[in-house]
Write a protein that binds this DNA or RNA. Structure first.
Lengths: 248, 248
DNA sequence: GAGTGGTCTAGACCACTCA
DNA sequence: GAGTGGTCTAGACCACTCA
């Protein structure tokens, strides 16, 4: 089966073989051909399937591993990345205690209901304004101390039905739940961080006074094809925690 | 010239060839054998020098390019990364305007003087407590609006002498100045972000009221060998700006 | 011992840059 | 056209995992 498109006279349409392979593997991942946590075929098998050398498949998979779409284990195989078996429970959580190691986080559900998505949320989720979605509210408590108040907005698709059981079964580890229940894998998130003054219910739930400074983190979470599928606004008490980041 | 160490009976000491090459090239970079902005020898030349195949050198350089120690340009060569020719003027600045593109940033020097480093600063810089260093204060004004108040602390080594001319000549682009004047290249930075209430001189200089929420960013900047060489505390007015981040 | 990913080589050819 | 990095191959061998 020939993969390489005929190269046009100019070089404009030139796409390296390994990028074409990468695309084919990504498409297979997206379509669910191999389930999260399961192994994908060996480099040798994929090389046969796509009729290229093992080295070319290898380069494609290396890129996918860098993007964390797959995880490679020498001697065992290459596996579809999954939030259900991730070693770190909150892989995108950047809030860390000022002293001591990162510990386990407790998530306490406040409530959740159907909503009509406001204009901005709908726009950020690339859905029609006024369309139906979900709002989930909860508190995150690292070391048992209630530190983060969180509002999560989801589009009606693919989140047609959400039940309390779903949320609790996964111990409020939402990205694991999205995968298991909706077959939706979060690949990366973008965050915007601001300093704001806390007020009302938010400070109440965090045990703070009105006017306390809070870190407000606005997150958009993306799945395959750079499609936004979750909005999240977090208010963090940074008295004893901080948002950590490394920039290279 | 043989590079490969004799492999011990067990596999404990096994280090792949390309990693050894990577180390040799890093050492050459660190020693200044090739200046920032200049090209390093071609893959073919390095392969000859180290007596390995071009592919092995290639893998080593690929890693270094990923770490942004070098920059590769097809057809031109591989160049030592430099803050003096960086396309982005503030490569580590994560504060962006809420609307519109990232624009040019104005830096206004407030003052600078010799200080004795306090215990925490000295510890973070891995120097003796009470040793001499520098404190630089300035305001950053994206779009001409004073948005960030910054305090920069430097160790006495290699910053033996700092003059106003140095700071102004480089238009307050400090990492470019460190490179040009002190031969010191910043490779990456770590940041800790908190929300705080602004007060005193800081809010005055930012044109804000006492008690305004500010984003406090504590940065440690590192050079070769993970050596910390700069501390920076920034207070950011996030009324019209935000700290942006992508997490994969 | 069989199968996986990881390293290394030698060689070919391509895309790009620059003189 | 010469030189650079970028892609691709075929084949060898190594480190690691698992039965």
């Amino acid at each position: 089966m020939p993969i390489m498109e005929l190269q046009s006279e100019t070089n404009a349409g030139y796409v390296p073989l390994y990028r074409q392979i990468k695309r084919l593997i990504t498409d297979a991942l997206r379509s669910g051909e191999w389930a999260p946590g399961q192994s994908i075929p060996s480099e040798f098998e994929l090389a046969q399937r796509y009729n290229v050398s093992q080295g070319t498949v290898r380069k494609a998979i290396s890129d996918l591993a860098t993007q964390k779409l797959v995880v490679r284990h020498q001697g065992r195989g290459t596996f579809v990345a999954s939030h259900q078996i991730e070693p770190t429970k909150f892989p995108f959580l950047r809030l860390a205690p000022d002293v001591g190691p990162v510990v386990d986080v407790n998530a306490n559900l406040i409530d959740f209901w159907r909503i009509k998505l406001d204009e901005l949320s709908a726009s950020n989720l690339s859905v029609a304004a006024g369309s139906t979605g979900w709002l989930i509210r909860r508190i995150l408590a690292p070391e048992g101390v209630q530190t983060i108040y969180e509002e999560i907005r989801l589009p009606g698709q693919p989140f047609e039905v959400i039940e309390e059981k779903m949320l609790l079964d996964h111990n409020c580890m939402l990205y694991s739940m999205y995968e298991a229940v909706f077959g939706l894998r979060i690949l990366y998130v973008e965050e915007r961080v601001k300093a704001v003054l806390g007020e009302g219910e938010i400070v109440d739930r965090l045990g703070l006074l009105d006017g306390s400074p809070l870190l407000r983190v606005d997150r958009i979470a993306y799945t395959y094809g750079d499609r936004p599928v979750e909005l999240r606004r977090s208010y963090c008490n940074t008295s004893n925690h901080h948002y950590r980041n490394q920039i290279v």
